[in-house]
Design a protein around this nucleic acid. Structure first.
Lengths: 253, 253
DNA sequence: AGCCGGAGTTTACAACGTAAAGCGAGGATG
DNA sequence: CATCCTCGCTTTACGTTGTAAACTCCGGCT
Protein backbone atom coordinates (compact mmCIF):
# COMPACT_ATOMS: atom_id res chain seq x y z
CA UNK A 1 0.00 0.00 0.00
CA UNK A 2 1.59 3.20 -1.16
CA UNK A 3 1.03 5.91 1.42
CA UNK A 4 1.43 9.51 0.34
CA UNK A 5 4.25 10.55 2.61
CA UNK A 6 4.70 14.12 1.52
CA UNK A 7 1.18 15.06 2.35
CA UNK A 8 -0.98 15.14 5.42
CA UNK A 9 -4.55 14.32 6.08
CA UNK A 10 -6.38 16.78 8.25
CA UNK A 11 -8.99 16.65 10.91
CA UNK A 12 -12.33 17.67 9.46
CA UNK A 13 -13.67 19.70 12.40
CA UNK A 14 -11.26 22.17 13.96
CA UNK A 15 -12.53 24.97 16.18
CA UNK A 16 -9.68 27.35 15.38
CA UNK A 17 -9.80 27.28 11.62
CA UNK A 18 -9.37 30.70 10.02
CA UNK A 19 -12.71 32.12 9.01
CA UNK A 20 -13.30 35.81 9.59
CA UNK A 21 -10.95 37.09 12.30
CA UNK A 22 -10.49 40.79 11.82
CA UNK A 23 -10.03 41.10 8.10
CA UNK A 24 -10.54 44.85 8.08
CA UNK A 25 -9.32 45.55 4.57
CA UNK A 26 -6.22 47.75 4.62
CA UNK A 27 -6.92 51.13 3.01
CA UNK A 28 -5.38 51.52 -0.40
CA UNK A 29 -4.98 47.79 -0.84
CA UNK A 30 -6.77 47.04 -4.04
CA UNK A 31 -7.93 50.54 -4.81
CA UNK A 32 -5.38 51.98 -7.21
CA UNK A 33 -6.56 55.58 -6.80
CA UNK A 34 -4.10 56.15 -3.99
CA UNK A 35 -4.23 59.86 -3.47
CA UNK A 36 -1.88 61.74 -1.26
CA UNK A 37 -2.39 61.08 2.41
CA UNK A 38 -3.92 57.63 2.16
CA UNK A 39 -0.91 56.04 3.76
CA UNK A 40 -0.86 55.16 7.43
CA UNK A 41 1.28 53.01 9.67
CA UNK A 42 -1.61 50.69 10.38
CA UNK A 43 -2.46 50.30 6.73
CA UNK A 44 1.13 49.58 5.88
CA UNK A 45 1.39 46.95 8.58
CA UNK A 46 -1.83 45.33 7.49
CA UNK A 47 -0.73 45.14 3.89
CA UNK A 48 2.56 43.72 5.09
CA UNK A 49 0.73 40.98 6.96
CA UNK A 50 -1.28 39.91 3.93
CA UNK A 51 1.88 40.08 1.83
CA UNK A 52 3.64 37.72 4.21
CA UNK A 53 0.68 35.41 4.52
CA UNK A 54 0.14 35.09 0.81
CA UNK A 55 3.75 34.44 -0.04
CA UNK A 56 6.69 34.27 2.28
CA UNK A 57 8.60 36.43 4.66
CA UNK A 58 11.38 37.07 2.18
CA UNK A 59 8.82 38.28 -0.32
CA UNK A 60 8.13 41.21 1.97
CA UNK A 61 10.45 43.75 0.50
CA UNK A 62 10.24 47.48 1.01
CA UNK A 63 9.81 48.01 -2.71
CA UNK A 64 7.26 45.24 -3.05
CA UNK A 65 5.28 46.54 -0.11
CA UNK A 66 5.41 50.02 -1.57
CA UNK A 67 4.24 48.73 -4.93
CA UNK A 68 1.34 46.97 -3.25
CA UNK A 69 0.32 50.26 -1.71
CA UNK A 70 0.79 52.14 -4.98
CA UNK A 71 3.70 54.09 -3.64
CA UNK A 72 7.46 54.26 -3.85
CA UNK A 73 9.45 52.24 -1.29
CA UNK A 74 10.93 55.29 0.38
CA UNK A 75 7.49 56.66 1.17
CA UNK A 76 7.13 53.95 3.80
CA UNK A 77 9.97 55.31 5.86
CA UNK A 78 7.80 58.15 7.07
CA UNK A 79 5.75 55.56 8.95
CA UNK A 80 8.27 52.86 9.82
CA UNK A 81 11.78 53.47 11.01
CA UNK A 82 13.29 50.49 9.26
CA UNK A 83 12.46 47.05 8.03
CA UNK A 84 13.09 45.73 11.52
CA UNK A 85 10.57 48.17 12.85
CA UNK A 86 8.16 47.06 10.16
CA UNK A 87 8.48 43.46 11.29
CA UNK A 88 8.01 44.41 14.93
CA UNK A 89 4.93 46.32 13.93
CA UNK A 90 3.60 43.33 12.05
CA UNK A 91 4.03 41.10 15.09
CA UNK A 92 2.39 43.66 17.32
CA UNK A 93 -0.52 44.07 14.93
CA UNK A 94 -1.22 40.39 14.71
CA UNK A 95 -1.03 40.00 18.48
CA UNK A 96 -3.42 42.88 18.84
CA UNK A 97 -5.94 40.95 16.80
CA UNK A 98 -6.13 38.71 19.80
CA UNK A 99 -7.00 41.56 22.08
CA UNK A 100 -9.98 42.44 19.98
CA UNK A 101 -11.19 38.86 19.73
CA UNK A 102 -14.64 38.65 21.29
CA UNK A 103 -14.17 34.97 22.03
CA UNK A 104 -11.30 35.75 24.33
CA UNK A 105 -12.96 37.25 27.34
CA UNK A 106 -10.63 38.57 29.94
CA UNK A 107 -12.76 39.45 32.91
CA UNK A 108 -14.81 37.45 35.31
CA UNK A 109 -14.14 33.91 34.43
CA UNK A 110 -12.31 31.10 36.13
CA UNK A 111 -8.66 30.70 35.31
CA UNK A 112 -9.44 27.51 33.46
CA UNK A 113 -11.87 29.10 31.08
CA UNK A 114 -9.50 32.02 30.73
CA UNK A 115 -6.59 29.83 29.72
CA UNK A 116 -8.71 27.76 27.41
CA UNK A 117 -10.08 30.74 25.53
CA UNK A 118 -6.74 32.41 25.42
CA UNK A 119 -5.00 29.32 24.10
CA UNK A 120 -7.56 28.87 21.38
CA UNK A 121 -7.39 32.53 20.53
CA UNK A 122 -3.66 32.30 20.02
CA UNK A 123 -4.06 29.16 18.01
CA UNK A 124 -6.58 30.91 15.82
CA UNK A 125 -4.22 33.73 14.96
CA UNK A 126 -1.39 31.26 14.40
CA UNK A 127 -3.49 29.33 11.91
CA UNK A 128 -4.74 32.51 10.30
CA UNK A 129 -1.19 33.80 9.81
CA UNK A 130 1.02 30.75 9.49
CA UNK A 131 3.84 32.69 7.89
CA UNK A 132 3.78 35.39 10.52
CA UNK A 133 3.75 33.10 13.52
CA UNK A 134 7.40 32.05 13.33
CA UNK A 135 8.16 35.75 13.46
CA UNK A 136 6.07 36.12 16.59
CA UNK A 137 7.96 33.22 18.04
CA UNK A 138 11.52 34.20 17.26
CA UNK A 139 11.62 37.99 17.26
CA UNK A 140 13.72 39.13 20.25
CA UNK A 141 11.38 40.16 23.06
CA UNK A 142 11.40 43.58 24.71
CA UNK A 143 12.77 42.10 27.92
CA UNK A 144 14.04 38.62 28.71
CA UNK A 145 11.03 37.86 30.88
CA UNK A 146 8.54 38.68 28.11
CA UNK A 147 7.89 35.39 26.41
CA UNK A 148 6.42 34.71 23.03
CA UNK A 149 3.79 34.25 21.88
CA UNK A 150 2.11 36.44 24.53
CA UNK A 151 4.66 39.13 24.04
CA UNK A 152 2.87 42.23 25.15
CA UNK A 153 2.97 43.70 28.61
CA UNK A 154 -0.78 43.99 28.75
CA UNK A 155 -1.25 40.33 28.00
CA UNK A 156 1.23 39.45 30.69
CA UNK A 157 -0.54 41.72 33.10
CA UNK A 158 -3.90 40.24 32.20
CA UNK A 159 -2.60 36.71 32.54
CA UNK A 160 -0.81 37.17 35.81
CA UNK A 161 -3.60 39.20 37.29
CA UNK A 162 -6.25 36.64 36.41
CA UNK A 163 -4.27 33.81 37.92
CA UNK A 164 -3.50 35.83 40.98
CA UNK A 165 -7.17 36.57 41.51
CA UNK A 166 -7.89 32.89 41.15
CA UNK A 167 -5.68 32.02 44.05
CA UNK A 168 -2.32 31.35 42.45
CA UNK A 169 0.66 32.47 44.47
CA UNK A 170 3.19 34.84 42.95
CA UNK A 171 5.57 32.06 42.22
CA UNK A 172 2.91 29.81 40.78
CA UNK A 173 1.35 32.36 38.51
CA UNK A 174 4.74 33.15 37.02
CA UNK A 175 5.37 29.45 36.71
CA UNK A 176 2.04 29.10 34.95
CA UNK A 177 2.86 31.93 32.58
CA UNK A 178 6.04 30.20 31.58
CA UNK A 179 4.54 26.77 31.13
CA UNK A 180 1.68 28.20 29.17
CA UNK A 181 3.99 30.17 26.90
CA UNK A 182 6.23 27.27 26.09
CA UNK A 183 3.25 25.02 25.53
CA UNK A 184 1.74 27.42 23.03
CA UNK A 185 5.01 28.13 21.34
CA UNK A 186 5.97 24.51 20.88
CA UNK A 187 2.63 23.27 19.69
CA UNK A 188 1.75 26.11 17.40
CA UNK A 189 5.16 26.54 15.89
CA UNK A 190 5.20 22.90 14.94
CA UNK A 191 1.70 23.07 13.63
CA UNK A 192 2.24 26.02 11.34
CA UNK A 193 5.62 24.72 10.31
CA UNK A 194 4.10 21.41 9.24
CA UNK A 195 1.39 23.30 7.45
CA UNK A 196 3.99 25.45 5.72
CA UNK A 197 5.91 22.40 4.62
CA UNK A 198 2.79 20.93 3.14
CA UNK A 199 1.77 23.76 0.90
CA UNK A 200 5.13 25.50 1.02
CA UNK A 201 5.55 28.45 -1.33
CA UNK A 202 9.02 27.56 -2.46
CA UNK A 203 10.70 24.23 -2.58
CA UNK A 204 14.26 25.07 -1.73
CA UNK A 205 16.19 22.20 -0.11
CA UNK A 206 18.72 19.90 -1.70
CA UNK A 207 18.75 18.86 -5.36
CA UNK A 208 17.05 15.47 -5.32
CA UNK A 209 15.13 16.09 -2.15
CA UNK A 210 11.79 14.42 -1.40
CA UNK A 211 10.74 13.43 -4.85
CA UNK A 212 10.20 10.17 -3.01
CA UNK A 213 11.88 10.04 0.37
CA UNK A 214 13.76 6.80 0.61
CA UNK A 215 12.77 5.07 3.81
CA UNK A 216 14.41 1.74 3.15
CA UNK A 217 16.92 2.44 5.90
CA UNK A 218 14.22 3.21 8.40
CA UNK A 219 11.86 0.28 8.93
CA UNK A 220 10.04 1.87 11.85
CA UNK A 221 9.34 5.00 9.88
CA UNK A 222 8.15 2.88 7.04
CA UNK A 223 5.68 0.96 9.12
CA UNK A 224 4.49 4.13 10.82
CA UNK A 225 4.15 6.02 7.58
CA UNK A 226 0.39 6.12 7.67
CA UNK A 227 0.28 7.02 11.34
CA UNK A 228 2.80 9.80 10.83
CA UNK A 229 0.94 11.25 7.90
CA UNK A 230 -2.19 11.87 9.88
CA UNK A 231 -2.73 15.24 11.38
CA UNK A 232 -4.50 15.45 14.71
CA UNK A 233 -3.23 18.86 15.69
CA UNK A 234 -6.53 20.05 17.03
CA UNK A 235 -7.13 17.15 19.36
CA UNK A 236 -3.51 16.94 20.40
CA UNK A 237 -3.59 20.60 21.21
CA UNK A 238 -6.66 20.09 23.32
CA UNK A 239 -5.25 17.12 25.17
CA UNK A 240 -1.92 18.73 25.91
CA UNK A 241 -3.66 21.90 27.00
CA UNK A 242 -5.80 20.00 29.44
CA UNK A 243 -2.81 18.10 30.73
CA UNK A 244 -1.07 21.40 31.33
CA UNK A 245 -4.08 22.73 33.16
CA UNK A 246 -4.21 19.67 35.34
CA UNK A 247 -0.61 20.33 36.27
CA UNK A 248 -1.41 23.92 37.09
CA UNK A 249 -4.39 22.81 39.12
CA UNK A 250 -2.06 20.73 41.26
CA UNK A 251 0.29 23.68 41.62
CA UNK A 252 -2.52 25.76 43.06
CA UNK A 253 -3.67 22.97 45.34
CA UNK B 1 13.71 48.17 46.27
CA UNK B 2 14.95 48.65 42.76
CA UNK B 3 14.88 45.36 40.92
CA UNK B 4 17.01 45.04 37.82
CA UNK B 5 14.35 44.26 35.27
CA UNK B 6 16.45 43.99 32.18
CA UNK B 7 18.62 41.27 33.57
CA UNK B 8 18.13 37.78 34.82
CA UNK B 9 19.58 35.83 37.65
CA UNK B 10 20.58 32.31 36.81
CA UNK B 11 20.59 28.98 38.54
CA UNK B 12 24.07 28.13 39.73
CA UNK B 13 24.08 24.41 38.95
CA UNK B 14 22.80 23.42 35.54
CA UNK B 15 23.58 19.99 34.09
CA UNK B 16 23.42 21.11 30.48
CA UNK B 17 25.76 24.06 30.59
CA UNK B 18 28.12 24.25 27.59
CA UNK B 19 31.53 22.89 28.49
CA UNK B 20 33.29 20.75 25.92
CA UNK B 21 30.74 19.25 23.53
CA UNK B 22 32.52 18.37 20.32
CA UNK B 23 34.64 21.41 19.67
CA UNK B 24 36.70 19.76 16.98
CA UNK B 25 38.44 22.82 15.62
CA UNK B 26 37.48 23.51 12.02
CA UNK B 27 40.49 23.15 9.73
CA UNK B 28 41.82 26.43 8.50
CA UNK B 29 40.09 28.38 11.23
CA UNK B 30 42.84 30.29 12.92
CA UNK B 31 45.70 29.00 10.84
CA UNK B 32 46.27 31.55 8.13
CA UNK B 33 48.45 29.29 6.00
CA UNK B 34 45.42 28.11 4.06
CA UNK B 35 46.94 26.23 1.16
CA UNK B 36 44.96 24.91 -1.73
CA UNK B 37 42.70 22.02 -0.85
CA UNK B 38 42.21 22.85 2.79
CA UNK B 39 38.57 23.68 2.22
CA UNK B 40 35.86 21.16 2.92
CA UNK B 41 32.14 21.25 3.37
CA UNK B 42 32.43 20.16 6.96
CA UNK B 43 35.03 22.77 7.76
CA UNK B 44 32.94 25.46 6.15
CA UNK B 45 29.88 24.45 8.12
CA UNK B 46 31.81 24.35 11.35
CA UNK B 47 33.24 27.80 10.81
CA UNK B 48 29.76 28.99 9.96
CA UNK B 49 28.47 27.65 13.28
CA UNK B 50 31.09 29.48 15.31
CA UNK B 51 30.48 32.59 13.25
CA UNK B 52 26.78 32.47 14.08
CA UNK B 53 27.38 31.65 17.72
CA UNK B 54 29.83 34.44 18.28
CA UNK B 55 27.76 37.11 16.61
CA UNK B 56 24.42 36.76 14.97
CA UNK B 57 22.77 34.99 12.10
CA UNK B 58 22.84 38.07 9.92
CA UNK B 59 26.56 38.34 10.49
CA UNK B 60 26.99 35.10 8.57
CA UNK B 61 27.63 36.43 5.13
CA UNK B 62 29.20 34.52 2.29
CA UNK B 63 32.03 37.03 2.11
CA UNK B 64 32.52 37.10 5.85
CA UNK B 65 32.58 33.34 6.04
CA UNK B 66 35.03 33.24 3.18
CA UNK B 67 37.24 35.79 4.88
CA UNK B 68 37.20 33.72 8.05
CA UNK B 69 38.44 30.77 6.04
CA UNK B 70 41.04 32.86 4.25
CA UNK B 71 39.31 32.50 0.94
CA UNK B 72 37.15 34.44 -1.46
CA UNK B 73 33.37 34.16 -1.04
CA UNK B 74 32.86 32.41 -4.34
CA UNK B 75 35.17 29.59 -3.36
CA UNK B 76 32.52 28.35 -0.96
CA UNK B 77 30.09 27.60 -3.74
CA UNK B 78 32.04 24.54 -4.71
CA UNK B 79 30.97 23.00 -1.39
CA UNK B 80 27.66 24.66 -0.74
CA UNK B 81 24.92 25.14 -3.30
CA UNK B 82 23.62 28.37 -1.87
CA UNK B 83 23.27 30.24 1.37
CA UNK B 84 20.11 28.28 2.06
CA UNK B 85 22.04 25.09 1.63
CA UNK B 86 24.68 26.45 3.97
CA UNK B 87 22.08 27.06 6.64
CA UNK B 88 20.59 23.62 6.19
CA UNK B 89 24.06 22.20 6.54
CA UNK B 90 24.64 24.16 9.71
CA UNK B 91 21.47 22.80 11.24
CA UNK B 92 22.35 19.29 10.22
CA UNK B 93 25.83 19.60 11.63
CA UNK B 94 24.67 20.82 14.99
CA UNK B 95 22.06 18.10 15.20
CA UNK B 96 24.73 15.56 14.36
CA UNK B 97 26.67 16.70 17.40
CA UNK B 98 23.90 15.06 19.32
CA UNK B 99 24.42 11.77 17.59
CA UNK B 100 28.01 11.66 18.72
CA UNK B 101 27.20 12.64 22.28
CA UNK B 102 28.34 9.82 24.57
CA UNK B 103 25.83 10.84 27.20
CA UNK B 104 22.99 10.09 24.85
CA UNK B 105 22.90 6.33 24.71
CA UNK B 106 20.51 4.92 22.24
CA UNK B 107 20.45 1.22 22.84
CA UNK B 108 19.33 -0.93 25.68
CA UNK B 109 17.72 1.40 28.10
CA UNK B 110 14.21 1.99 29.22
CA UNK B 111 12.24 4.55 27.32
CA UNK B 112 12.31 6.83 30.32
CA UNK B 113 16.05 6.97 30.51
CA UNK B 114 16.18 7.29 26.76
CA UNK B 115 13.90 10.30 26.72
CA UNK B 116 15.66 11.89 29.65
CA UNK B 117 19.10 11.61 28.11
CA UNK B 118 17.84 12.68 24.73
CA UNK B 119 16.08 15.72 26.14
CA UNK B 120 19.14 16.81 28.03
CA UNK B 121 21.29 16.19 25.02
CA UNK B 122 19.14 18.49 22.93
CA UNK B 123 19.11 21.07 25.67
CA UNK B 124 22.87 20.93 25.78
CA UNK B 125 23.24 21.70 22.11
CA UNK B 126 20.63 24.42 22.35
CA UNK B 127 22.55 26.12 25.12
CA UNK B 128 25.84 25.59 23.35
CA UNK B 129 24.52 27.21 20.16
CA UNK B 130 21.86 29.66 21.25
CA UNK B 131 22.00 31.58 17.99
CA UNK B 132 21.70 28.44 15.90
CA UNK B 133 18.80 26.92 17.77
CA UNK B 134 16.10 29.22 16.38
CA UNK B 135 17.31 28.09 12.99
CA UNK B 136 16.89 24.47 13.98
CA UNK B 137 13.41 25.32 15.13
CA UNK B 138 12.13 27.28 12.19
CA UNK B 139 13.86 25.91 9.11
CA UNK B 140 11.27 24.12 6.96
CA UNK B 141 11.53 20.38 7.55
CA UNK B 142 12.15 17.82 4.84
CA UNK B 143 8.64 16.45 5.20
CA UNK B 144 5.68 17.74 7.19
CA UNK B 145 5.91 14.85 9.63
CA UNK B 146 9.54 15.55 10.49
CA UNK B 147 9.41 17.82 13.49
CA UNK B 148 12.08 20.04 14.90
CA UNK B 149 14.21 19.86 16.86
CA UNK B 150 14.72 16.13 16.16
CA UNK B 151 14.68 16.75 12.47
CA UNK B 152 16.64 13.86 11.09
CA UNK B 153 15.18 10.61 9.89
CA UNK B 154 17.59 8.58 11.95
CA UNK B 155 16.60 10.33 15.13
CA UNK B 156 12.98 9.71 14.33
CA UNK B 157 13.73 6.09 13.61
CA UNK B 158 15.69 5.74 16.84
CA UNK B 159 12.98 7.42 18.84
CA UNK B 160 10.07 5.50 17.41
CA UNK B 161 11.91 2.23 17.51
CA UNK B 162 12.88 2.62 21.14
CA UNK B 163 9.35 3.43 22.19
CA UNK B 164 7.98 0.61 20.13
CA UNK B 165 10.34 -1.85 21.78
CA UNK B 166 9.24 -0.53 25.14
CA UNK B 167 5.67 -1.44 24.49
CA UNK B 168 4.19 1.67 22.98
CA UNK B 169 1.62 1.10 20.28
CA UNK B 170 2.10 2.64 16.86
CA UNK B 171 -0.31 5.39 17.61
CA UNK B 172 1.16 6.11 21.00
CA UNK B 173 4.77 6.21 19.93
CA UNK B 174 3.90 8.72 17.23
CA UNK B 175 1.91 10.65 19.79
CA UNK B 176 4.92 10.57 22.09
CA UNK B 177 7.20 11.79 19.33
CA UNK B 178 4.96 14.75 18.76
CA UNK B 179 4.54 15.68 22.40
CA UNK B 180 8.23 15.34 22.99
CA UNK B 181 9.09 17.51 20.01
CA UNK B 182 6.80 20.31 20.95
CA UNK B 183 7.92 20.18 24.54
CA UNK B 184 11.57 20.53 23.55
CA UNK B 185 10.86 23.17 20.98
CA UNK B 186 8.81 25.34 23.26
CA UNK B 187 11.04 25.16 26.26
CA UNK B 188 14.35 25.49 24.53
CA UNK B 189 13.32 28.17 22.11
CA UNK B 190 12.12 30.30 24.97
CA UNK B 191 15.20 29.58 26.96
CA UNK B 192 17.69 30.57 24.28
CA UNK B 193 15.54 33.51 23.25
CA UNK B 194 15.57 34.86 26.79
CA UNK B 195 19.28 34.26 26.93
CA UNK B 196 19.73 36.08 23.66
CA UNK B 197 17.70 39.02 24.88
CA UNK B 198 19.86 39.24 27.95
CA UNK B 199 23.21 39.51 26.29
CA UNK B 200 21.81 40.35 22.88
CA UNK B 201 24.34 41.24 20.19
CA UNK B 202 22.45 44.19 18.81
CA UNK B 203 19.87 46.37 20.40
CA UNK B 204 17.47 47.01 17.59
CA UNK B 205 13.93 47.77 18.76
CA UNK B 206 12.20 51.11 18.98
CA UNK B 207 13.91 54.44 19.70
CA UNK B 208 13.40 54.88 23.44
CA UNK B 209 12.96 51.21 24.19
CA UNK B 210 13.86 49.63 27.50
CA UNK B 211 16.10 52.26 28.93
CA UNK B 212 13.79 51.70 31.86
CA UNK B 213 10.60 49.87 31.00
CA UNK B 214 7.71 51.78 32.43
CA UNK B 215 5.56 49.41 34.43
CA UNK B 216 3.33 51.97 36.07
CA UNK B 217 0.40 50.74 34.00
CA UNK B 218 0.96 47.16 35.06
CA UNK B 219 0.71 46.70 38.82
CA UNK B 220 0.82 42.93 38.70
CA UNK B 221 3.99 42.97 36.63
CA UNK B 222 5.43 45.46 39.02
CA UNK B 223 4.83 43.35 42.07
CA UNK B 224 6.06 40.24 40.28
CA UNK B 225 9.15 41.92 38.96
CA UNK B 226 11.53 40.01 41.16
CA UNK B 227 9.80 36.70 40.53
CA UNK B 228 9.85 37.32 36.79
CA UNK B 229 13.52 38.18 36.76
CA UNK B 230 14.59 34.88 38.18
CA UNK B 231 15.64 32.16 35.85
CA UNK B 232 14.83 28.60 36.79
CA UNK B 233 15.06 27.15 33.31
CA UNK B 234 16.92 24.06 34.38
CA UNK B 235 14.48 23.00 37.07
CA UNK B 236 11.45 24.01 35.04
CA UNK B 237 12.77 21.95 32.17
CA UNK B 238 13.17 19.00 34.46
CA UNK B 239 9.73 19.31 35.99
CA UNK B 240 7.96 19.73 32.67
CA UNK B 241 9.91 16.84 31.23
CA UNK B 242 8.87 14.60 34.06
CA UNK B 243 5.28 15.72 33.75
CA UNK B 244 5.41 14.84 30.08
CA UNK B 245 6.83 11.44 30.85
CA UNK B 246 4.11 10.80 33.39
CA UNK B 247 1.61 11.56 30.67
CA UNK B 248 3.32 9.16 28.30
CA UNK B 249 3.43 6.54 31.01
CA UNK B 250 -0.33 6.74 31.25
CA UNK B 251 -0.61 6.45 27.49
CA UNK B 252 1.30 3.21 27.55
CA UNK B 253 -0.73 1.87 30.49
C1' DA C 1 56.42 18.82 -23.35
C1' DG C 2 51.71 19.43 -23.54
C1' DC C 3 47.30 19.15 -21.85
C1' DC C 4 43.57 19.03 -18.54
C1' DG C 5 40.63 19.27 -14.73
C1' DG C 6 39.65 21.12 -10.51
C1' DA C 7 40.30 24.74 -6.82
C1' DG C 8 40.10 29.41 -6.06
C1' DT C 9 39.81 34.38 -7.98
C1' DT C 10 37.97 38.19 -10.63
C1' DT C 11 34.51 40.53 -12.49
C1' DA C 12 29.89 41.53 -12.91
C1' DC C 13 24.98 42.17 -11.97
C1' DA C 14 20.42 42.42 -9.92
C1' DA C 15 18.06 43.11 -5.70
C1' DC C 16 18.02 44.77 -1.29
C1' DG C 17 17.81 48.50 2.71
C1' DT C 18 18.16 53.15 3.28
C1' DA C 19 20.44 58.17 3.33
C1' DA C 20 19.87 62.51 1.09
C1' DA C 21 18.10 65.64 -1.79
C1' DG C 22 14.34 67.11 -4.74
C1' DC C 23 9.66 68.50 -5.67
C1' DG C 24 4.83 69.77 -5.96
C1' DA C 25 0.52 70.80 -3.86
C1' DG C 26 -1.99 73.12 -0.36
C1' DG C 27 -2.56 75.77 3.73
C1' DA C 28 -0.82 79.67 6.37
C1' DT C 29 0.80 84.29 6.36
C1' DG C 30 2.01 88.81 4.54
C1' DC D 1 -3.11 87.91 -4.50
C1' DA D 2 1.73 86.63 -3.90
C1' DT D 3 4.90 84.26 -1.02
C1' DC D 4 6.66 80.80 1.68
C1' DC D 5 6.78 76.88 4.43
C1' DT D 6 5.83 72.27 5.38
C1' DC D 7 4.32 67.78 4.65
C1' DG D 8 4.10 63.58 1.78
C1' DC D 9 6.04 61.43 -1.75
C1' DT D 10 9.66 60.66 -5.56
C1' DT D 11 14.32 60.58 -7.42
C1' DT D 12 18.74 59.54 -7.16
C1' DA D 13 22.42 57.32 -5.16
C1' DC D 14 25.35 54.23 -2.39
C1' DG D 15 26.94 50.19 0.04
C1' DT D 16 26.00 45.36 0.90
C1' DT D 17 24.18 41.19 -0.23
C1' DG D 18 23.83 36.46 -3.01
C1' DT D 19 25.43 34.44 -6.98
C1' DA D 20 26.41 33.59 -12.34
C1' DA D 21 30.14 33.44 -15.52
C1' DA D 22 34.53 33.78 -16.99
C1' DC D 23 39.23 33.59 -15.84
C1' DT D 24 43.68 31.90 -13.70
C1' DC D 25 46.79 28.79 -12.08
C1' DC D 26 48.84 24.68 -10.25
C1' DG D 27 49.59 19.58 -9.97
C1' DG D 28 49.43 15.32 -12.18
C1' DC D 29 48.36 12.63 -16.36
C1' DT D 30 49.78 10.93 -20.99
Amino acid sequence: MAVMMGTMTFDPQDPDTPEALGSTAPPGSGSRVTMRGSLSRRGILQTAVTLIDQNDLRYLTMRQLGADLGVEAMALYRYVHSREDLLSGVVELVIDDLYGDPDVHLKDSGWEEYLLKLAHGVRRIALAHPQVFPLIATRPPAAPWVRPPLRSLRWMESFLDTLHRCGFSDRDSVQAYRSFSSFLLGHLLLEVSAQGADIGPIEQASPHDTPKTDLSEYPRLQSLASELSQDHSATEFEIALEALMDRLQLLRQ
